[in-house]
């Protein structure tokens, strides 16, 4: 047994939509510091699962523990304050505000929580730091909606980063990015992982294999297998259920 308790634990976590059980009695553990990828076919319940974790939707039953504390009943904004940040699958920024304002909203959230007076200088420094990490510094005064698509995804990540989360959930972050953008994205996530635990939903297998410490495969609302990239690659059951015969990974 590991000496430290995991950062995130779910017990028996279940969510039903009408007759459909999207997440089915999931027991899940994520140790601090890990990059974990969740993979699985469409409709496997990946997005529903992380939405339960970050509080966008409420579970039908089960329990969520973050850093040892039960957060099942907490509203989403309280969970963010405790250090869970979520970036949306469909880019969700403030298109009519400037890039600065988009990131400033995250920075001021963190500064307010820290207490004390928030100065304009602190705010600018926080924004500059987050934008530098995603290489968007020169676009600080642009209207966010006018950024190229790939840059909007990066802005979304910067908004998550600026919260300085302990757990960063990335929901299909590389969707729609070019190959070059994906490469720099992989480097970015590795850098993030030095300070935060990363939970990643991803379809792009090379990205998963390059980044993940461990992989959880979901199918029909429940984990099917879990292991290192090498183990998952070798797992016949996974080949069958998910990768099919075209196992080109």
């Amino acid at each position: 047994m590991a000496a430290v308790s995991p950062l995130l634990v779910t017990r028996d976590l279940t969510r039903r939509f009408g007759g459909l059980t999207a997440v089915d009695h999931v027991d899940f553990e994520l140790p601090a510091g890990e990059i974990r990828a969740i993979i699985g076919p469409n409709g496997a319940g990946k997005t529903t699962f992380v939405s339960l974790v970050c509080g966008r939707i409420q579970p039908s039953s089960g329990q969520i523990l973050f850093d040892g504390a039960d957060i099942t009943g907490l509203p989403a904004h309280e969970r963010v304050k405790r250090g869970i940040a979520y970036t949306f699958q469909i880019t969700s920024i403030f298109p009519n505000l400037t890039v600065f304002d988009n990131v400033a909203l995250s920075v001021q959230r963190r500064l307010i929580d820290k207490g004390g007076r928030m100065t304009a200088r602190d705010l600018e420094a926080g924004v500059a730091e987050a934008l530098a990490r995603v290489h968007l510094t020169d676009r600080v005064d642009m209207t966010a909606g006018k950024l190229a698509y790939g840059h909007q995804r990066l802005l979304e990540v910067a908004m998550g980063l600026a919260l300085k989360p302990r757990l960063l959930i990335l929901d299909e972050p590389t969707q729609g990015l070019s190959d070059a953008e994906i490469d720099s994205f992989i480097a970015l996530v590795r850098e993030i992982a030095r300070e935060a635990t990363v939970l990643l939903i991803e379809h792009n297998m090379p990205v998963v294999m390059a980044l993940a410490d461990r992989i959880t495969v979901m199918s029909n609302g429940a984990p099917l297998a879990e292991g290192t990239p090498a183990e998952i690659r070798a797992n016949a059951e996974v080949q069958q259920a998910y990768l099919g015969s075209t196992a080109d990974v």
Partner: peptide, 19 residues
């Protein structure tokens, strides 16, 4: 800035930790 952002995208604000 918070008010304007709520007007623009309420769900995102919630996920940035705002009540």
């Amino acid at each position: 800035r918070i008010l304007i952002a709520i007007r623009e995208n309420e769900e995102r604000m919630r996920m940035l930790g705002y009540d």
